[in-house]
Design a protein around this nucleic acid. Sequence first.
DNA 1: CTGAAAGCGCTTACAG
DNA 2: CTGAAAGCGCTTACAG
Lengths: 347, 347
Amino acid sequence: MTTKRVTLADVAAEAGVSKTAVSFALNKTAGARLSEDVVERVKAAAKKLNYRPNYAARTLRTQQTQSIGFLSTNVAVTRFAMAMISGALREADAQDHTLLIGETSAAIASKGANPAKLKDRAIAALLDRQIDGLIIADMGAKKVDAPQLPPGTPVIFVNLHGPEDYCSILPDEATAGKEVVEALLAGKYRNNVILIGTSPKLETDTSVSATIGLRLDAIRKTLRANGVENWTEIASDHWVPELGYKSILEAHKQGQMPDAIICLNDNIAFGVYQACSELGVKIGKDVSLVSFDDDEFSENLKPGLTTARLPYEVMGQLAVQEVLAESSEVGIRLVPMPIQHRDSVAK
Amino acid sequence: MTTKRVTLADVAAEAGVSKTAVSFALNKTAGARLSEDVVERVKAAAKKLNYRPNYAARTLRTQQTQSIGFLSTNVAVTRFAMAMISGALREADAQDHTLLIGETSAAIASKGANPAKLKDRAIAALLDRQIDGLIIADMGAKKVDAPQLPPGTPVIFVNLHGPEDYCSILPDEATAGKEVVEALLAGKYRNNVILIGTSPKLETDTSVSATIGLRLDAIRKTLRANGVENWTEIASDHWVPELGYKSILEAHKQGQMPDAIICLNDNIAFGVYQACSELGVKIGKDVSLVSFDDDEFSENLKPGLTTARLPYEVMGQLAVQEVLAESSEVGIRLVPMPIQHRDSVAK
DNA sequence: CTGAAAGCGCTTACAG
DNA sequence: CTGAAAGCGCTTACAG
């Protein structure tokens, strides 16, 4: 009853050839000349017996696992990580690789240990599985150093500015910042612009965010380039709905109600919707609003929110492609953040 | 420069004992009597050389991979799958196992092939990796049959009603339906109850949903048990914000504005918020509203939405526990759906 | 063009 | 109580 697994030896016996021949035939080994006849017989035998190669045996021999490690801090909590994993998963699948997902957070939760140590531990766990390459995902942090890996193991950083001599995949915030402002100014309003969520910390400290500074630079530059000289900035690095909500209510109370609103993310914009709704102000009619992220709820808002999409899935996909590519170039790869034009900008 | 990996043989040499002794010492093999001294020497040597066992070699020998397959249709698109994976990942990590995630969707996208075939293909890919157990996640479908696996490989169904002789992990919809209605009726209103999103199809066809029928039964029963004899039902199996939005606007126009609203999910409720906001009706004051899911945005709504949480993470976690448990019981395991009491119910 | 043999790094009967 | 040896299922020099 114990259906023993079919091995390569079984196929060889069935086809009446050596194991070598089977291996060559099935793997299309380059430089191996096999007669047509043998190849056909092997294939037929393999199919007949429903042969499936044993990955462990192959790995032991070749030292290649056909697997990629994906390391992310706090997978569960952060939605962005899941989106990247989803893209990575898909691409790995397409290229017949397995994605091994490493977690730092679980351990963190259990004991208040040193995060760096935990990360090392997570990488070690992945390395024990002999991954062929490693993808490290996180926010910001220019100063991460590359982990100690077996020589020749490719490492890619994603959503994270890794060391100079590695490949880092990042969203193209500068372009997005420019295009979002352009989308706003293409609308009806620009007299009283408000920018919600600026933050000296986020802008300067690249260990917190590698890209927000670029986004903000672009926003300000584009405003000026289009003749907007003065605008209001609400500083905060806590990007929650409450921030947008309170900012608008406050501005209204002061008699400073803006007509053009830039939120640093959709969560803030969500709060702006709530405030406007309470005030009876129609977004897309009485005021214009643009934002960043393209969160899931954003297209369901009324009116739909015009926002620059953070392309996490594409980034995950690209990360796998890079790690699997023979010659991945060192440096930064920028991924476009497509603007989702909806109806929150007044025409 | 090629830092060759340290093997068990290296440790044996360093400690001056046999490979057998090293293996016994490191694995604490039961029934193996080693002198204290040997064990200590082995541990010291392993640590000194930074020995890490080779998983592939161990797998080849033991036929155990320490990995679990997680099969889900369309991982990327459905948020629920990601939440379950997140929970499963965490638990697998805690139990020193690897989670191999299998996808059906990628292939679907490429060619319009037979979904069942694709599922088989995905399972085969997982099986090739010699997973120790399999978790199958999806929606509904009582009629799925168990895949052909090597005897002794545990299979768990999650968010899915598998065959009778397997373990299925499902949300406890009956209890949730009851508690949600009780939460609603504990509030101020109950004169004009509306139930949005009923659907003969969803309720009856267990291949579409195994549990919605139970949820609706419980809702209706609990309404009656609490003296509510008449209520309105809006039928639709397309649970989007638009449905909630239009239903309320329509009811209002007919002069039938409800005072107590039950939405079958948070997305519908989201639309109800939009409609109420337009009508100037205050949720949690002028009307009561309850729902199901506890979507991410739900606590950010103003006021916060009272809703029954779909416990996807816990379900994923439980699935791993079950698959790894020695004696997992056959049958259905119900996971509680904790009610999130917020402020959408008028006191 | 094809096959016998070694070896990847472990675990585990088995013998002493 | 400890060690020599076989073997898991592959791949790949090497010999013919």
